[in-house]
Every structure is written in C-alpha cells, then in structure tokens.
Computed example of a mutant assay.
Amino acid sequence: MATLLPTVPYWVFCVYEPLSIFGGFAIAILFPELFVALQLPDTEVTELSPSNKLIAWQTGNLFGIMAMMGIAVLFATTEPPVVKRYLVALLLGDIGHLTAVWWVMGSYEFFAAHRWSWFTWGNVGMTMFLALARVGTLGGLLGEIKLQASNDEKAKKAK
C-alpha cells in the first residue's frame, strides 16, 4: 500500500490510474490507427503515415512512463510534500490535457457528454474525475496525506 495516501486516493491514484494509463499505452502501441481515430468523435480508422504512427507510439510510450512514474513516486516516497507536488504536477497536466481536447473538439462536443464514446469518457470524463480527485486529495477532503498506520499497527492499537 502507498503509505502516504488515505484509502480513496490510494485506490484512485495507485490502482485505477496506473491501470487506465496502461490501457492507453496498450491501445496506442498495439492499435495506433484506432488510437488516433478515437481521439475525436465520428473519425474513421485509416492507415497512418509513418509520422502519425510515430506520434501515436511516442504518446503510448509517454503513457507507459506516466504509469511507472506514478507507481514509483507513490509507493517509494515517505515525504508528503513529494506526493503533493506530484499531484499538483498531474493536476496541471490534466488542465492542459482538457484544454487541448476542448480546443480541438469544440465546446458543443466537449460538453455533450451524452454523445461521448467510451474512449471520450476515458479521455475527457476520467481526466475530469482524476482532476477532481487530485483537488479533493490536495484540499484534504479525501483524508490527509501522511504516513498511514499499517494493519499490524492498527491491530496492536485495538488490543
């Protein structure tokens, strides 16, 4: 267990987020044409130029790095400021990501959640969820970022 995060942020940032990012990695690397086509609604899957395939693969590679970095930081550090700065950096990345998608999709498609595909829910909806979870965690609404008592310590205190 990541020792500094309370229960809900632990499950969001140490379990769900790395798994979902790994899913993005896998789609980008294994199915780059699909990955590119799914970025915007109503886009057909077509053969990619070598340059576009390279960009999809590089994006997938970045997803892989992000998943490994999250696991490395959240499971290794014993310093709350490190976790907080990590979450702030990702929150800024979430804002940049959402702004770029909004800019390209346009307001109507971006805010028409009832029209979103499963991929858009992952790309936009889950990014919004993660951003809100980061704000809630940083604001202390989901518990305090601190050294958490292990199950052994909790059992000793209960006796």
Rank of each mutant, 00 (worst) to 15 (best):
Q58N: 05
L38M: 14
K53N: 11
T99G: 09
M126T: 14
L90F: 12
S107M: 04
E79T: 12
M66Q: 09
N52R: 10
S49P: 06
S117Q: 01
A112L: 02
L87I: 03
A76C: 13
I27F: 05
V45C: 10
T77V: 07
L90I: 11
V36G: 01
K53H: 03
A113C: 01
I29F: 10
G23T: 05
V12N: 03
S49N: 04
A149Q: 15
K154F: 10
K146F: 07
A72L: 13
P80E: 07
M66F: 11
K156F: 09
D152T: 12
G140V: 01
V82W: 06
F35C: 02
V101E: 01
L54G: 08
P50L: 02
A131E: 03
W116T: 05
A67C: 10
F31K: 13
F22N: 02
Y16A: 15
P18L: 07
S150L: 06
P32S: 09
A56Y: 01
S49F: 04
M68F: 15
S117M: 03
G125R: 09
S49D: 06
N123D: 14
W121N: 07
Q39A: 14
S51D: 07
Q58L: 15
I71W: 12
L38Q: 14
A89F: 12
L34T: 15
T59A: 14
T3W: 11
R134W: 04
L92D: 02
E33R: 15
M69T: 14
T43M: 13
A67D: 02
P6V: 04
K84F: 04
W118C: 00
A158W: 06
I55T: 03
E109Q: 13
L87V: 05
D42L: 10
S107I: 01
T120C: 01
L38P: 01
F22C: 13
L34S: 10
F75N: 13
I29V: 13
Q58V: 12
R115S: 08
D152M: 08
Y86W: 15
T59D: 07
T77A: 05
T3F: 11
W116L: 04
L138G: 02
M105L: 12
N123A: 02
I65T: 07
P32V: 06
L130M: 10
T127A: 12
G96Q: 05
L4Q: 08
V101F: 00
A100H: 09
N52P: 00
A100P: 00
L19Y: 01
L62S: 11
E33Y: 07
G23K: 03
V124Y: 01
Y10L: 09
K154P: 03
I65R: 06
K156I: 13
L98G: 06
F129P: 03
G24D: 02
K157N: 11
Y16W: 14
F22H: 10
V36Q: 06
A28P: 07
